[in-house]
Design a protein around this nucleic acid. Structure first.
Lengths: 229, 229
DNA sequence: TACGCCATGCGTACACTGTTCCGATGTCGT
DNA sequence: ACGACATCGGAACAGTGTACGCATGGCGTA
């Protein structure tokens, strides 16, 4: 009855669905990602998707691993010439970039552990670098864990504000205005003296600067721990 | 028509609703938290809740600030006698404990920035400690940011596994079994040599040990950065 | 004491969600 | 040419957040 694509090749496929879902989640946010939405975008019936994926949970897992498999920026995979610190910093920046590219990714990190093949590949590269700093496999594993952990927390904090802005539909300026008003009110209450001091004296560094500062400190501490181990 | 509570005092209140919601979210997970569920638990109609809170979003914000306001464990607020490093470590452990006590809390951190009064109070205490390490307000702010960020990432990673176990209803052993099977399969593929090395050689440290290791390293690096600044 | 206002509670309804069931359709192997 | 089969998709179901409007009863005021 309906017109079908000539040749009978399937219009839907796991890969097409996942790619479309990633695109939609990037554009509209993970909350707005619904099966009906994906199907409409793909020009197919809603329930047809279930011929290729088991359910929404599995779909999200596939999405997560798919974006972890995106080409890492070149700085994340330099030749093995440099020292391990700059290389590890490169890997961290690459991970941060991936998490920032797909704001929903960090949210999923708190719901299920990422264990897909592409995630494992990233771990493998990081472990290789850490292995150059220490021969102790346990120490190397903990080093990688600490760095990944810091990156995740940093991006999460950074995205929280951005997401709040997006869902409320505020522009950067409106948001600043809104938060500024609230902060001023809190400062005037005088109950948080140190917070006041920060607001009044500290210059506002952007998220990138904060990320780099903390990462440098962490790597310094790791180097110290590994060197004396 | 219905029996009402004598004295006409309102049975519902924002505080009662928030407390109940926190209890339910702790017990059943944030996904199972629905308005109908809260109302049933409270013995009231579903839409009655909206007399006291604006909507689910606001409710969650209230929940977040409520648990941030829970009494911090004593170790988090020692007298100002000790050095700033151990005090900051105490604050970090206190934050970690709060996030672990309410597994849904870390998930919300990636959706909206925490700005409630109780959150600000915690920031204030941390800034006080950081201020003892450096006179530079900007440096102090970045130090606090780095520590909080690390804690959030660490707990997020830790909870991801726990949550996955809970939603699949697996016991610790079943989960280990399930993941172990998958890991063995990956190892046998031989595509991730460093990952293999970790699996084979590294001893498995629990989440608490990993947290402490990374935190110590971060604090070491921060001390170096602040000392030379 | 009697009246009316108004905060509070809540039943109904609506537009959504993910998912299961089952029928229709078209292609391919035999 | 015919039957098996994979693919597609409409209908239906249980569940969600919440807007609307009506009942109810306590309280301030006359």
């Amino acid at each position: 009855m309906r017109d079908r694509r000539p040749g009978g090749r399937p219009a839907l496929s796991e890969e097409r669905i996942v790619r479309c879902a990633v695109r939609l989640a990037d554009a509209e946010g993970i909350d707005a990602l619904s099966m009906r939405c994906i199907a409409t975008e793909l020009g197919s019936g809603t329930t047809s998707l279930y011929r290729h994926i088991a359910g929404k949970d599995e779909l999200i897992e596939l999405m997560v691993d798919a974006v972890y498999g995106e080409d890492a920026p070149p700085e994340a995979a330099p030749g093995p010439g440099g020292d391990w610190r700059t290389e590890m910093a490169g890997i961290a920046r690459g991970l941060r970039a991936a998490l920032l590219r797909h704001p929903w990714l960090a949210q999923q990190a708190s719901r299920r552990p990422a264990l897909g093949p592409n995630v494992l590949a990233r771990s493998d590269r990081a472990l290789a670098v850490a292995g150059r700093a220490t021969g102790d496999a346990t120490a190397a594993a903990m080093t990688v864990s600490a760095v990944m952990t810091y990156v995740l927390g940093s991006v999460t904090t950074e995205l929280a504000e951005r997401e709040a802005r997006r869902t409320t539909g505020m522009t950067e300026e409106e948001w600043q205005e809104s938060v500024g008003e609230y902060v001023r009110q809190v400062v005037d209450s005088g109950r948080y003296p140190h917070f006041n001091r920060r607001v009044l004296e500290a210059e506002e560094r952007d998220a990138g600067a904060r990320f780099t500062f903390g990462l440098d400190c962490l790597l310094t501490g790791l180097a110290a721990a590994l060197g004396s181990g």
